[in-house]
Computed example of a mutant assay.
Amino acid sequence: MPGTRLDVLAIGDAVVDVIADAEEGFLVEERLVKGSMQLLDAGQATRLYEKMGPARETSGGSAANTVSGIAAMGGRAGFVGQVAKDQLGEVFTHDIRAHGVEFETPPIDGGLPTGRCLILVTPDAQRTMNTFPGAAHQLSAQALDEEQIRGAAILYLEAYLWRAEGPREAMRAAIRIARAAGRKVALTLSDIACIGRHRADFLGLIEGGEIDMLFANEAELRSLAEEEDFDSALGRFEGKVPVIVVTCSEKGAIALEGGRRVEVPAAPVAKVVDTTGAGDLFAAGVLAALARGRSIEDSLRTGAIAAAEVISHYGARPEADLKALVRL
């Protein structure tokens, strides 16, 4: 897009992902629902971390994973998220910048520690996420760089962050800045747990014409629409959001653009190792391709390739050469 220096600028949880293998029995013992996401307080996070097995630590968070994927494809990506002035904050900052993502949000000192997401991966490759948001939920509108927002073709918002008042106001402010500059605004619904509490807010953004792209999985879309039938849920937002993208696990993905429905199959993968970040990398492929002017069909295929790569190994960041795989 003319006048932009970033393809996508995302606002989301700045957390460090701690990923470890776990047996089904461990989840039962800890009373964790497999495949779910739950919030932890500082004490719960410390206790669970101490009981986890050997783990990998990387900069994480849904939107952060997405922009890292975009950068890996050769796109120009930026991220806004709050970390603390502590060791994990330094891990997050170094890691996301090393992935080629512009990250300039100043750390805060004296508040909550940097957030972390404790991810347990069972032998069936399902991930169970346990998140202590920490400093991530202390993001404020004062941390925004207005020129950075105006300079991005697409502003991408993560619903996980909508749970806290400060970040919520920051995202509302960012939407106003982006729309005044003629930029696109995308929202990912993130998780059903986010929708139940904030459905009215999300519907208000959609009804108000403030969302240009909506990302969801089947369950999230049905929850937002309060419809059991998927087609009815999709139809609920037709004409209100220019582009709707819905992931359907192993069935592929569906998009609705200008009343036209497009479907693509999932990209083949030899073995599913860890589904962490599948939706995040799918969104990365779609956003990166759309920012380059590609068709919605090509964009969905790009997303499918990126998602297939990330589920073939542990972690939510690509390990193969995504730039070569997707060929933007």
Rank of each mutant, 00 (worst) to 15 (best):
R76M: 00
A77R: 05
A77Y: 05
G78M: 07
G78I: 02
G78P: 09
F79D: 13
G81W: 04
Q82F: 01
Q82S: 04
Q82W: 05
V83P: 07
V83F: 09
A84E: 06
A84V: 01
K85N: 15
D86S: 12
D86R: 08
Q87R: 13
L88Y: 06
G89T: 11
G89I: 00
G89S: 07
E90N: 12
V91L: 15
V91M: 04
V91D: 09
V91Y: 01
V91Q: 06
F92N: 04
F92Q: 07
F92W: 03
T93H: 13
T93A: 15
H94G: 03
H94F: 04
D95R: 10
I96R: 05
I96H: 11
A98N: 01
H99L: 14
H99S: 14
G100S: 00
E102G: 06
F103V: 00
E104R: 13
T105Q: 09
P106Y: 02
P106K: 01
P106L: 12
P107H: 06
I108Y: 01
I108N: 05
D109F: 11
D109M: 11
G110L: 11
G110Y: 08
G110V: 07
G110I: 12
L112N: 07
L112H: 08
L112R: 12
P113G: 11
P113W: 03
P113N: 07
T114N: 11
T114I: 12
T114M: 10
G115D: 00
R116A: 03
C117I: 13
C117S: 15
C117W: 11
L118I: 09
L118R: 08
I119K: 10
I119L: 00
I119H: 11
L120C: 03
V121Y: 04
V121S: 06
T122Q: 02
T122I: 13
D124F: 02
D124Q: 05
A125M: 07
A125G: 00
Q126C: 02
Q126A: 13
Q126W: 01
R127S: 07
T128I: 03
T128K: 05
T128F: 01
T128E: 06
M129C: 09
N130D: 07
N130G: 06
N130A: 04
T131H: 05
T131C: 09
F132A: 10
F132I: 05
F132Y: 15
P133S: 11
P133R: 10
A135N: 10
A135W: 08
A135Q: 01
A135F: 10
A136G: 08
A136L: 00
A136E: 07
H137T: 15
Q138C: 11
Q138V: 10
L139G: 05
L139C: 13
L139V: 01
L139K: 12
S140N: 04
A141L: 02
A141V: 11
A141H: 02
A141R: 09
Q142G: 13
Q142L: 14
A143R: 14
A143F: 12
A143Y: 01
L144I: 05
L144G: 13
L144K: 09
L144E: 10
D145V: 10
D145I: 00
